[in-house]
């Protein structure tokens, strides 16, 4: 058996692949946070709650309406995105221009309401969402066996990141978005409806979180609290990578997933805290973060 530093190669590659799967979720979530922060200037604490809603709606669609995975992967982000648009119009809109701290506090209050609501309605215990038929089983990668669904998650996450990057950097809609991020007043003066852009951006970012939730449903147990611990890790990732750069956020997310996987192999006790330790280290060495440009 091949060993590296006394660890069997199979265990090592297995954990790295698992790490990439986790990193894929971190990447999609921090991407959404960065987009929302860039234009709406709100650190969306409720991102984890919307991730949970995505997973839960997929579960409810299957249980109550018999709508399967492929329907849910489109419907759940749409429903959650529409919910996000309503939230933006009703609540977030009122605090634009105030200290961004209030955005964090407002969305934290929303976390309590949303999580509490799901707990009242469906209890705190986890529900099981079965993997869709076409994606069951495992694939032989030559060096290891990998569940097909996990490979699908990695592919989907990479596709999402590339598509979002393309939409922001290479389309005219993305150009308007970037303009509104840099100079909102000037962009408005050019006749672009910036408030509408803000609403759509929030809805879009939130829909991304829900999409990640649907992807996670077959892997994790679906419970009201599944998003809140995740969002704290994503915050640490965002501190490391900086909110200023969309691609920076995604790359940092993926990398830290891998680092977390490696920690599980070499010193599993530290795997839950490694991201926070790296954050502390980055703050000591490079306070502005790896991709940081501006201070918030």
């Amino acid at each position: 058996m091949i060993e590296i530093f006394g660890v069997p190669l199979v265990a090592l590659t297995g954990q790295i692949m698992l790490g990439i799967v986790n990193g894929a979720f971190y990447a999609v979530l921090s991407l959404g946070l960065a987009i929302i922060f860039g234009i709406v200037k709100v650190v969306n604490f409720a991102h984890g709650a919307f991730f949970m809603m995505g997973a839960f709606i997929a579960f409810l669609l299957l249980e109550n309406l018999g709508i399967g995975y492929w329907g849910a992967i489109f419907l759940a982000p749409l429903i959650v995105g529409a919910f996000g648009i309503v939230i933006e119009r009703l609540f977030l809109r009122r605090i634009y221009g105030l200290d961004p701290i209030y955005g964090l506090l407002l969305t934290f209050g929303m976390v309590l309401v949303i999580e509490g609501g799901f707990r009242v309605a469906y209890g705190s215990s986890g529900q099981i969402y079965t993997t869709p038929g076409a994606l069951r089983g495992a694939a032989d990668l030559g060096f290891m066996f990998m569940p097909i669904y996990r490979l699908f998650v990695i592919a989907a996450a990479v596709a999402i990141c590339v598509l979002v990057w393309f939409a922001i950097e290479r389309t005219s809609m993305g150009a308007k978005l970037r303009a509104a991020t840099e100079r909102p007043q000037l962009t408005q003066a050019f006749g672009i409806d910036v408030p509408l852009l803000m609403t759509l951006t929030y809805g879009g970012g939130v829909a991304l979180a829900a999409l990640a939730g649907v992807l996670a449903a077959p892997i994790q147990s679906v419970s009201p609290s599944m998003g809140s611990e995740l969002v704290i890790i994503v915050f640490a990732i965002v501190v490391i990578g900086g909110l200023g750069s969309v691609s920076g956020a995604a790359i940092t997310g993926l990398l830290l997933g891998v680092v977390e996987g490696l920690t599980k192999v070499f010193y599993s006790e530290a795997s839950t805290i490694i991201v926070f330790l790296i954050m502390a280290l980055v703050l000591l060495v490079r306070p502005a973060g790896l991709f940081g440009r501006e201070e918030g």
Binding site: I101, V239, A280
Partner: peptide, 21 residues
């Protein structure tokens, strides 16, 4: 010492992450 190396919302996120640790 760690959190005050940044400010505002970053500081809030750092303290949250450290408390999770």
């Amino acid at each position: 010492a760690l959190a005050t190396r940044r400010s505002g919302i970053y500081l809030a996120m750092i303290t949250l992450a450290l408390s999770q640790l």
